[in-house]
């Protein structure tokens, strides 16, 4: 469960302070599928980064699965990212020199799992890529790359998957395939949070959260 209370985020832009988030209250239950929508500059990416523990709020509290995350140090946050959160990015963010399997192994290496290879292969099988294990990203299609990224996100069974425009770089057919995989994972109990400005994608979710000027403006679902 994700529980954000009065989350604020300020950045210094030169000498002036910019309020990116102005007190966001947000609660996402376990197993929910939520979309976050908003125009660029609305603060949705910042909110996403805070939920994903890549960034820390300036004020407010963030409770993830019953634990205060906003008070954690960087080392603990890295561990939370490793164990509880899986990222799926618009640009895939795979390591170009490594094979699909090695990319999926990456979180396992940092968690100290003894036999990473077997788990990685298992995850790739789950996204339907067992025939592409040794291929490098540049030998894969866009849809396949995003599947590798999803396999990497789920390999440690995180409670949350965060998608940052996960279909943004894909054609509509491939995008639909990726959405199907993500929805399937959600159906199996993983919380799914997707940032998008595509209403068609948001329509898949149970709830849409609109962000405008650093605040939640309306809720659907």
């Amino acid at each position: 469960m994700i529980e954000l209370t009065s989350i604020t985020k300020k950045y210094m832009m030169g000498s002036s302070e910019v309020d990116v988030l102005k007190g966001v209250d947000l609660k996402i239950e376990s197993g929910e599928f939520v979309s976050i929508m908003g125009p660029s500059g609305s603060g949705k990416s910042t909110l996403m980064n805070i939920i994903g523990c890549l960034d820390r709020p300036t004020g407010g509290s963030y409770i993830l699965n019953g634990t205060r995350v906003d008070e954690m140090d960087e080392e603990e946050l890295a561990k939370v990212r490793n164990r509880n959160i899986g990222f799926v990015f618009q640009t895939f963010n795979l390591l170009a020199r490594e094979s699909a399997t090695e990319n999926v192994e990456l979180p396992l290496l940092y968690s100290g799992v003894k036999e990473p290879r077997a788990l990685a292969v298992e995850a790739l099988k789950e996204v339907g890529l067992s025939h592409r294990l040794g291929h490098r990203p540049n030998e894969l299609s866009g849809g396949e790359r995003q599947r590798v990224a999803i396999a990497r996100a789920i390999v440690l069974n995180p409670s949350i998957i965060l998608g940052d425009e996960p279909t943004g770089n894909l054609d509509s057919r491939t995008g639909a395939e990726i959405m199907a995989i993500l929805k399937d994972l959600n159906a199996k109990g993983t919380t799914l949070v997707i940032v998008t400005h595509d209403p068609a994608i948001a329509a898949h979710s149970q709830r849409v959260i609109n962000i405008r000027d650093g605040a939640v403006t309306g809720r659907a679902g």
Partner: peptide, 16 residues
Amino acid sequence: TREIGIRMAVGARRSD
């Protein structure tokens, strides 16, 4: 730089 970001996102600590 990007690789470093990816590694951090999937759980690499600064010490890693």
